[in-house]
Write a protein that binds this DNA or RNA. Structure first.
Lengths: 214, 214
DNA sequence: TAGCACTTTCGTACGCTGTATAAACTCGCG
DNA sequence: CGCGAGTTTATACAGCGTACGAAAGTGCTA
């Protein structure tokens, strides 16, 4: 007999390997050697399946045992986990604007983030606001990173063909001289892109720290 | 005769009024009193239309004339513009993880952001990194805001029915006592959510400022 | 063992999507 | 006028989510 967990696992496997677009009800069913409508005994709509997938990978962000002492270290750890999860499951980025329901693991994740502010004498509302800034930055970063990592080899040949067509058009605009500041960045590229996560994150934490002391 | 601009305008009107899902080739064509395939004389694929829509609303973020003096004021202005655009066109949030090609107005917008760092003696790479942090925060914020504003009345009755079903489930989890820090936030809500944009943004800018002086 | 209730599975079908293909129509130019 | 180029169109295909109702399987009770 099928289980909800097996369905979610199969869907995640497909999304990991072939992207979110490959996750269709019929396809997930096929991978489980079942017919499409069978899945609807376990989920109500596809949206539910996506929410379950998100909550499943949210579990991978959870830290077992006590958090590191120090709010910065705790948040850094949680942020690294979060980033790793999106790198493992890049389809997560494509689901970010779609407002899937949050599940138990998502709640646990938020609770752990809130716990980072324990014992600092920060009231709940302030902690929540710090967290919002932190979360917003994380969201933006992981989405951008997923796009940048995905773009060069999106769908193999198809995508490099598109790039080959799109590039000259952009290049033409750039060469027009309208973008003196942007042009060198595009032509020369940005070195050490991989360090930028920790660096940017620390800048944001610095901004928070300044107000945490006040 | 149809024009590319008219097609893009019609698509944006539909998205504004009924959301991104309502934007189908057939529907846009119908609003223009044309048949579906007619649009394909002006765009190559639907993805192109979406990219054109994005670039069209990117124009609304552009500042005419000189930027305010002072990098903070300049970035604040651009950030406010960006937020307003997403509030006017909430479907933008749903397109954020999808990597549509950037167009001329998108490039102009980035160029304006880079211009905010003019005359500060910051090298290009550093300015770029500052901008990345700023952009990532903005991305995260506008997506979250769009979701929060959209969620309560997503699709009228349908959505409040879903909420009525989903709520008890979450409530049950919360009442289980596993989330001592999160529970009060959900039960009591977060006051003054509207001020949080400027506040969070300023914290991020504070973080940047600390390193800009070094 | 037989029957019944219930769950799980499945076939079929509907309306929708993006878009390939090729035919028809329109229009300015030689 | 005729022709070629560009625009519009009908038709069709493969795929999607999922509503509906029947079939098959499972387990409990008499």
């Amino acid at each position: 007999m099928l289980t909800r967990e097996a369905i979610v696992a199969a869907a995640i496997a497909i999304a990991d390997a072939e992207g979110l677009d490959a996750v269709s009800i019929r396809r997930v069913a096929a991978d489980l050697e079942a017919r499409a409508m069978t899945l609807y005994s376990y989920i109500e709509r596809k949206e539910d399946l996506l929410a379950l997938m998100l909550d499943e990978i949210a579990a991978e962000t959870l830290v077992e045992g006590p958090l590191p002492t120090g709010w910065r270290e705790a948040l850094l750890l949680l942020a690294r986990r979060e980033r790793e999860v999106v790198r493992r499951h890049p389809w997560r980025a494509g689901l970010i604007g779609h407002g899937a329901a949050v599940g138990p693991n998502g709640l646990r994740h938020v609770e752990q983030k809130l716990a980072a502010f324990d014992g600092l004498g920060v009231d709940r509302l302030t902690a929540w606001r710090f967290l919002a800034v932190f979360n917003d930055y994380m969201t933006g970063f992981v989405v951008r990173e997923a796009l940048e990592r995905g773009a060069p080899r999106e769908q193999g040949v198809n995508e490099s063909e598109r790039a080959a067509v799109a590039e000259p058009y952009i290049r033409e605009l750039i060469d027009g001289g309208e973008f003196p500041r942007l042009a060198p960045m595009i032509e020369r590229g940005v070195p050490g892109a991989d360090d930028n996560f920790e660096r940017g994150l620390n800048w944001v934490l610095d901004g928070i720290e300044g107000h945490l002391r006040a």
